[in-house]
Amino acid sequence: MPKHISRLVLLLVVLGVLGYAGKQLLTVKSFYQFGHYRGDSVAEIASDRPKFHTPKSCEQCHAAIYDVWSKGVHNNPGIGKIVKCEVCHGAAGSRVMKPGAYHSSTGTDHPDNLKLDIPSDTVKLCTQCHEQMPGRPAEQKQIVVAAHAGEQQCKACHNVHSPRTFVGALASTSRPGNAAAGKAIAGDCAACHGKAGISEDPAIPNLAGQNEIYLADAIKGYKKGLRKNELMSGMAKDLSDAAAENLAAYFSGLQCKSAQNGEAKEAARGQALAAQCFSCHGANGINSQAMWPSLAGQSKDYLQSAIKSYRAERKNSMMSKVAKDLNDADAAALAAYFANAACR
């Protein structure tokens, strides 16, 4: 065979051997293990750490809130509507990618070094699902935001973890006060609020028959400076929480008496406006929600000044908004209506 031919054949053989050896060397061992891909990559992709941890993991520490949520309308597996913890609070785990490696399992985690989001703007949060919008199915509860509550935060009325209950409803079950102990220390109150909790002065509220939780909260509020009144702040300063609860238990048990000091004509006008108050203050102003006061039977002067105070220094996310939309005449009419209403 001529030399140049044999050289060519030799070259081809060498190239073939080199090529094959190169392919053997450079192809990862697990390639073709399961198919035309790197077999190891399956386990690599599966090794990523999940970020969303499911409500079961939240329950371990937040059992009380989990309990409220799980009994509420936002956990309704029967109709497939389940708003889990991480829908509003974000993922409980966080995975930070290592540079160079796409899949990795390092990162921060709640509760060690990752704080979860507590949404402050509940209007923005809740309307993400509940704003009325073409395309949303009719079964979805939807509101026209401006007509429903204006710029009010949803959490002012709705318990965020169980939205179909009022904010205070779940906390209101505990009534630790002792009425007898309250009666023993109630003497100081009588000077202004009347002997049996029925005030002689129209500017001072009746206490008899008022909601217990509301009364206790009011005294504690004066003590902590959340509410301000020259006399009441001084009176409450020296009262313990237990004393406040005892007083509340005593006065809430007394028989109420309607002030009846509103003008009939104004009261009639007030009746038309009063419907907006009923959802929180109860039908006709007799409250079933213990967080908030009954209005029926309080004196006209006191109610009127209370409404006006919400327009100025007194702060309450719901009442400030309500009071802003009422002019002086409206406030007077409402006060007259509730003053004349039967308190029981």
Binding site: A46, S47, D48, F52, H74, G80, I82, K84, V87, C129
Partner: peptide, 21 residues
């Protein structure tokens, strides 16, 4: 399909958070 979740017995993240199933 969140392969790292479904191989651990979890749902994909989008299924996990969907509030209306």
């Amino acid at each position: 399909w969140c392969y790292h979740r479904i191989t651990k017995g979890l749902n994909p993240a989008c299924v996990e958070v969907c509030p209306v199933s």
